[in-house]
Amino acid sequence: EGRGLGLSPEQLVNCILEAEPPQIYLREPINKPYTEASMMTSLTNLADQELVLMISWAKKIPGFVELTLSDQVHLLECCWLDILMLGLMWRSVDHPGKLIFSPDLRLNREEGNCVEGIMEIFDMLLATTSRFRELKLQREEYVCLKAMILLNSNNCSSLPQTPEDVESRGKVLRLLDSVTDALVWTISRTGLSSQQQSIRLAHLLMLLSHIRHLSNKGIEHLSTMKRKNVVLLYDLLLEMLDANTSQSS
């Protein structure tokens, strides 16, 4: 019984599946040939829409809204780009060589050529996506991994100040345990031997460190694009980027 949530692993997986955000589309279609400005405008337009949906999504993860507001803010600020990137990989998993940013923005690596420094990130995204393809990532595993990224992102925060903070941090750890149980339960349904299940769990979790590395690269790249005035960032995206760059500096 899911460590205080009152949910079985199966029920928790179903809740997380139901929390999945809807598909998004470009607000304004992008014409070819792509330019640095047009592509960055499209990518940030999509990211901005997805961030709003990500907040709704997080609120539907069982137990998340019971955390202190400051922990909720902090968790999302730490992991938003990891979550956007994992979502991109999931959409692209059945399309080798392509990155499906949205149904109306499907790019191959060469199309990243027009944006300085983005091809290196595209290559890493494609490589991690093909690893997920090799592993035949299942939808249930994907949603558990995404929730784990959210709950595991708090490692850079300051020490808790109040009893409420201490309690909230404890809740995050218990939630993380519940989602881990849910992922273990999902893997257990694959019919693999117990040893193979452990190896699959390790393979999936090891990819999270690649995603963190990728998102750090992405934050660095977006900051450069902002500094060079290649793209005007919308309010929420700007705020999320600033939260990252001010923490790391």
Binding site: V52, A58, K59, L69, S70, Q72, V73, E77, E239
Partner: peptide, 24 residues
């Protein structure tokens, strides 16, 4: 919670009980 935190859009979207999509 600091005043700066309270002015965050993220803070506001999290606090609002209705769907953030409506707010956006």
């Amino acid at each position: 919670t600091s005043l700066k935190e309270k002015h965050k859009i993220l803070h506001r979207l999290l606090q609002n009980s209705s769907s953030p999509v409506d707010l956006a």
